[in-house]
Write a protein that binds this DNA or RNA. Sequence first.
RNA 1: GGCCCGUUCGUCUAGGGGUUAGGACGCAAGGUUUUCAUCCUUGUAACAGGGGUUCGAAUCCCCUACGGGCUACCA
Length: 508
Amino acid sequence: MSKVRVRFAPSPTGPLHMGGVRTALYNYLFAKKHGGDFLLRIEDTDQNRYVPGAEQYIMESLQWCGIHWDEGPGTENAFGPYRQSERQGLYRQYVMQLIESGRAYYAFDTPEELEAMRKRIEAEKSGNPQYDSRSRLSMKNSLTLSGEEVEQRLASGENYVIRIKIPENEEIVLEDLIRGKVTVHSSQLDDKVLFKSDGMPTYHLANVVDDYLMQISHVIRGEEWLPSAPLHVLLYQSLGWEDSMPQFAHLPLLLKPDGNGKLSKRDGDRLGFPVFPLQWKDPKSGETSSGYREAGYFPEAFVNLLALLGWNPGTDQEIFSLKELVEAFSLERVGKSGSKFDPEKAKWFNHQYLQSQPLQTITERMQVIANQKGIHTNPDKLPKIAALMRERANFVHEIMEQSAFFFEPPSQYDEAFAKKRWKEDTPGILMSLAELLESAEPFTSENIHALIQKFMEDNGIGAGKLMPGLRLALVGSGMGPDLSAIMEILGRGESLERIKRAAQNLKV
RNA sequence: GGCCCGUUCGUCUAGGGGUUAGGACGCAAGGUUUUCAUCCUUGUAACAGGGGUUCGAAUCCCCUACGGGCUACCA
């Protein structure tokens, strides 16, 4: 087998959504698994839909995910350039080749005429309302016009497109790596435009030409391309490239969590989860869409959860590093049916990574959040807080939210909890405990814990009587981790101060 | 409408002729804990329907239903 070369070929028409990232990921995994190349190619043949910043966004997204391309914009070599707009001059010779061999033809129809044709066929119910072997002879093209007139129209600079001439009665068979044999009859295909009147190729032509020129071995893309895959096969055949035609693999779609249909931007807004890897601000509308990065996901978690949406290793393993994914990945284990995205499970993945991430990574992120929120922190405390708090959180920002009491004494006490647990004798008990804690040396969790145990024993006080009040004093609510650990982090001064303050101020 | 693709717990999925249909998320209960979480244990819950083929079908075939994709001088 020749070298594996795959490409991810997004169109810079907006932010890349997570389905696109998954397609890129599968391409990457497949390439790396087989020691091949992963290329990034920008399909910007539609100038009308170009969105500034989109290309940059795509690249930044892939980089954030750790999906690195071997070739792409910026890595110029023999196969470049990697933006189709920069390859414009390349395509013309191939359409001309098609025209000369009679596999394509010029067409001069106006949008109005095309519309009229569709309407007519629809009204007659005489077939598919499309430009095909049945209707093309009633249109204005080089099949119906005299050679002279075609020449004349071309010479006068009239707008024209070049269409593929779909053969009339042919079974087109394509062997899809995921779906098996897919057969389509040529009568179902229409004479797709290959070359637009603006001098740009359409996707169909450009992707076939570029895949050929870039020696792509496997085309791994979304299922939405399956219907046009036979057209691409025809193009390879017509161009005489049948022998180097890549193998196809059409991936199932990512579906919205509720109801049906493919995942869209709207769903994220509606259900409160990101559908984009990175936050995106639409340059036209100014509208902002949230991203996984900004929502606090680790890129490793994002990649992990994406990988398992449509692929599985056949084992019970669910946590995979990128490296492990490369090792385990195969197209044979990609499913055929669409996957609904489950935001809850996404959080679970991040929880897993939060537990296994180096403490330093977490504290760095905590520091960033602290700076943003204007929270003053003692950098020495952060690793301790992280270690103590992370198991209860899914995200670093949740650690910060749940750790607020470390940075600021309670400004108020949870009323319901106080009502239940703050008794008349609580202040007195706490004051005695505070006195005892003065002697804890050093002021560590272990020592504090031991002293508290001793205190309870000596005074015949149960944990249920002491702890809730103590917690209220230190935290302000009935939640949080072990109190000895909290006090160690708070330090002796702050801990005792909080205890005394509550004892003095909190009334039954 | 036409064409193509698909259908196992609510969700992601394993399983590809003989399984008590397995795991994970979620949910529920119990346990641990000073609280809330975490964690642990247990439980809940599925082969879309109908016909075949077969001694035997979730698994193979057909039909139906349902879902999805495509149907542009967009990708």
